[in-house]
Every structure is written in structure tokens, then in C-alpha cells.
Design a protein around this nucleic acid. Structure first.
Length: 462
RNA sequence: GUCCCCAUCGUCUAGUGGCCCAGGACGCUGGCCUCUCACGCCGGUAACGCGGGUUCAAACCCCGCUGGGGACGCCA
């Protein structure tokens, strides 16, 4: 039997980093084994599911570079789900229950008060009731023994059957419930390996019970640990960004996110940097971790910085366009941006940082903002005489190259017995408006002679 | 409350009984480089939760404790 894996999100919001990670693991498991990867949108809760959320999830997965061989919507499969419920009813593995939601809640309260597991007490189990208004269908689950399985990541898991009650398969409104739908879908879609979040561990024995009742073989299950915030609590909005798309907005590259998430809870020896291909080549469930992991933005940023340095400048330039527009720089000159990207690639952890760094190259000369403190400190009269001389030297040049620029600077310094330090910051502040920038020669080159001169003029007039 | 799961540097992790008085990476930090800021390079800091076993030998196996997480829906 050939392997098929799946990712089954419920479209009630954006793609969370936790969901993204299980999607990545399932996708990698499939790719590593040349297997099929299917996406099943679990949109049966019509109240909470939205088409926008579905789209957001698909967008998130696409951004990460994940693809799928099949896309299914659970809400369109209820007929199939019901057939299986009927089958269970026919074979006596399921029964009708007339207890109301309130009555069941009372049973749970009672059990809780007595220090037992809160659950349905099985009162209609042997009543042989037929269908009727307000009635649900329940699984006739085993009362004793345990349900065991071998988890791909956690190993042997044993669940006492007494801990589980006769779960509802079909609601009083006739709709199938989650556990039933998942079993039917996984089975009919030929899913062989289910990798999902740890919050599903308790569902697994329940689903196995359904497989057993149906006489079907369950797939292999694996449960990956949760992702925690810096305070070791379940990652949530108060920790900052939790949606992968928010990270895109924050200037994270998808390959950095993919690498980071894949490496969070999984390892391959000491290797930290993984290309998509390496991930596919090395991924296995044996090296999935068993304990929860804290999401560390600093490490994500380190990886992102790495990938920014590796990326083609044109690609980065294109990604910078909207960020520059936000900063009032409306251009679509990819080439011009790409020309200065290499200067900021080693200086940026995110694209946002990069946009903040290199905006001075692109902004109009008269709109360049000067840092007041920097001006006060470095653009004094004495500095301005240096700037004037250098400006004149630059303007007289036949070619504007790193070498000719250097000649102007060094000859001026030599003639006046000055060190480079004496003029570096004044020039920098004059042409960039601030005290930090890439090397002076490359900054001037990146700016071009015209802008360099214009800015020197403007600075001297201050 | 009941059940299930988990436990190595601040963080991500390597480690599957001897190669570990525990390795890598991020972070932090000292230095080098240097026109600023970065990059880069070299160095440092820092962990097997506790207590019992088993064994010639335990981070690795077993038991208990403690601590954390998850589940207990006519949500998914």
C-alpha cells in the first residue's frame, strides 16, 4: 500500500505557526517517500468556518512553498459520513440515544462531583431505541480493556477504555461529528499516515474505536508536540505574531520560516540550515522531538538573515516594493533597488529592517531626512570645508568609480594631513542623513554622483 | 478532579549503557577586522529537575516524586 499523508485544518482563522509546522511535517513525510499529500479542509462547523479563512490557510501554505495533490472539503462529504454511521447502526455497533444535551451535562456534573471522569453514562445503550426527533447516534464502545497503538513520535500509547464514553457519531440535527467524519475521510481517502498536533492524542483512541467497529485498519498516527511562547505557555496572540502571514508582513522569507519551523521539534544531527531539498531528503519521524518547543524569534531572525544574504537581489528588491511604498517611496524600478540590496543584505535580519536601512538611497534628495543629533555633531563648519573640497573633487571626475572616489578622498586627506576618520562621518551624515550606513565608497557609488553631490550641497547649506 | 503525554545550557537541540566531568546552533559576552553600523573570524558563558534502584558502567533502562503540557463538547 503506498503512503498518503494529509493536513486537515479547520478554517476558523489564519494559518497558525503550529498548524503550519504539522503541515510541513506531513508534507515532508510525503515528499520524502514520494507519496501523495492531501489537503482536507475540515469546514463542517458552518458557524465558525469561513471561505476567507480557507483562503488564508491555502495562502499560508503556498507562501511556505507547500503543494498538495488533492484538495477536499469535509462539508461536502456528509453523505458518505452518514453511510458509515448507518453501517454501524446496522451492525449493532452504534445505537440511538434519546438523552438531551442537558441530561448528559448533568451526568457529567455528577461524575465530576464524585471524582470520576465526566462522561455520558450509557443510559440508552441497551434500550434499542430507533430514530426520533432530538436523538443522536452513539458508538457502542467497549467498557473495559484499553485501546493501544504505536505512535510514530511518542511510541506506545495506551488509553483505558473506561476513560472514554459512547461518543456521539451523529448529532440530533443529523450531522456527523468530527471523530466519525475524520475516520471516514481518512479511510476513504486512503490516508496511511496521520501526523497531527498533540492536542489530538485523546482523539486517536476514540477514532481507533470507530475503525475497529467498522472493521477497518487504522492508519499510522503520530503526534507532534505543541509550540510554546517565551513564557512556556501555549503560543497565543499575546506573544506577538502567530500567523505565518504576519511573519511575511514582518519581512521574514518563506524559506527561513520553513527551515525554522521544520527544525523546531525535529533535527538531523547538528545541521541547522536546510534547503527545501535537504529537508525532503533527510526528514523522518524518528527524529521528531517528544517535548514542547518554545518559539524563538531571535533564531528565526538569524535564519532569515542567512537567507537574505543568499537570496537574489532582484527577488529581494521585488519583495521590498510594498515596504518602500509604505515609506513614501513609490517606485517600481527593481534594478535600482536590486543595485543597493547587496549593501544591506548583511545588515538586515528582516526585509522591514532592510527597507528602513536602504530607503535613503531611493528617496528624493530634497525629502531625505537628516538626523538632528548627527547633523549637530558632524556637520560643523570645519567639516563643511572638507565636504566642499571633496564635492569639488568628485564633480571634476571623469568617471565615478570606487577607485576614482578613493583618489579624491585620499589625496585630499594627504594634502591636509587628515585621517579618514576626520571626514568619514561628516560625509556619511551628509549623504545618508544618519550615522550608520554601508562603507562610504559603496554608499556613494550606490547613490551615484548626482545624488551624492546634491546631498553634499544640501548638507553644506544647513 | 480523572486520564494521557512530556522533562539535557536562557532557547532549539545532538545523545538510544561505556566514544559525554555532555557536542552543535541561537542568544548573551570578550577580542580581531574597521570610516560608522553590520557581516565575517577567534574565544568565553551556560544544562542531563530530584530521589531511589538495575548494571562493572546511566543523560541514556526501571520505579517514585516534583514540575510542565494536553484531553475530558451534539467544536474541530
Amino acid at each position: 500500500m503506498s503512503m498518503v499523508t494529509r493536513f486537515a485544518p479547520s478554517p476558523t482563522g489564519f494559518l497558525h505557526v503550529g498548524g503550519a509546522r504539522t503541515a510541513i511535517f506531513s508534507w515532508l513525510l510525503a515528499k520524502h517517500n514520494q507519496a501523495r499529500f492531501v489537503l482536507r479542509v475540515e469546514d463542517t462547523d458552518l458557524q465558525r468556518s469561513t471561505p476567507e479563512a480557507t483562503q488564508a490557510i491555502l495562502d499560508g501554505l503556498t507562501w511556505l512553498g507547500l503543494d498538495w495533490d488533492d484538495l477536499k472539503y469535509q462539508s461536502q462529504r456528509t453523505e458518505l459520513h452518514n453511510e458509515f454511521i448507518d453501517r454501524l447502526l446496522d451492525s449493532g455497533q452504534a445505537y440511538w440515544c434519546a438523552c438531551s444535551a442537558e441530561e448528559v451535562e448533568a451526568m457529567r456534573e455528577k461524575a465530576r462531583a464524585e471524582g470520576r471522569k465526566p462522561k455520558y453514562d450509557g443510559c440508552c445503550r441497551e434500550k434499542n431505541l430507533g430514530p426520533g426527533k432530538g436523538r443522536v447516534v452513539r458508538l457502542k464502545a467497549p467498557l473495559t480493556g484499553s485501546t493501544d497503538y504505536l505512535d510514530m513520535v511518542k511510541g506506545h500509547i495506551s488509553w483505558p477504555n473506561q476513560e472514554m464514553d459512547d461518543m456521539i457519531l451523529r448529532r440530533s440535527d443529523g450531522s456527523p461529528t468530527y471523530n466519525l467524519a475524520v475516520v471516514v475521510d481518512d479511510h476513504t481517502m486512503g490516508i496511511t499516515h496521520v501526523l497531527r498536533g498533540e492536542d489530538h492524542v485523546a482523539n486517536t483512541p476514540r477514532q481507533i474505536l470507530i475503525y475497529n467497529a467498522l472493521g477497518l485498519t487504522p492508519p499510522a498516527f503520530g503526534h507532534v508536540p505543541m509550540i510554546l511562547g517565551p513564557d512556556k505557555k501555549k503560543l497565543s496572540k499575546r506573544h506577538g505574531a502567530t500567523s505565518v502571514i504576519e511573519y511575511e508582513k514582518d519581512g521574514i522569507l518563506p524559506e527561513a520560516m520553513l527551515n525554522y519551523l521544520a527544525r523546531l521539534g525535529w533535527s538531523h544531527g547538528d545541521q541547522e540550515i536546510f534547503s527545501r531539498e535537504e529537508l525532503i531528503e533527510h526528514f523522518n519521524t524518528e527524529h521528531l522531538g517528544t517535548s514542547a518547543a518554545v518559539f524563538d524569534t531571535a533564531k528565526l531572525h538569524w535564519l532569515n538573515a542567512h537567507y537574505i544574504k543568499e537570496a537574489a537581489p532582484e527577488r529581494i528588491a521585488a519583495l521590498l516594493l510594498p515596504l518602500l511604498a509604505e515609506r513614501g517611496i513609490h517606485t517600481d524600478d527593481i534594478k535600482a533597488i536590486a543595485a543597493v540590496v547587496p549593501l544591506y543584505a548583511p545588515r538586515s535580519k528582516t526585509l522591514v529592517e532592510m527597507a528602513d536601512g536602504l530607503d535613503f538611497f531611493l528617496v528624493d534628495d530634497d525629502k531625505l531626512k537628516y538626523d538632528e543629533k548627527a547633523v549637530g555633531k558632524f556637520l560643523k563648519d570645519e567639516s563643511k570645508t572638507h565636504l566642499q573640497a571633496i564635492r569639488d573633487g568628485l564633480i571634476a571626475l571623469d568617471d565615478f568609480t570606487e577607485e576614482t572616489i578613493d583618489n579624491v578622498l585620499t589625496s585630499y586627506l594627504a594634502a591636509h594631513e587628515l585621517t579618514f576618520k576626520a571626514i568619514a562621518q561628516p560625509i556619511r551624515v551628509a549623504i545618508t542623513g544618519r550615522t550608520n550606513s554601508p562603507g562610504l565608497h559603496e554608499t556613494m557609488l550606490g547613490l551615484g554622483r548626482e545624488k551624492t553631490i546634491a546631498r553634499l550641497d544640501r548638507a553644506m547649506a544647513m
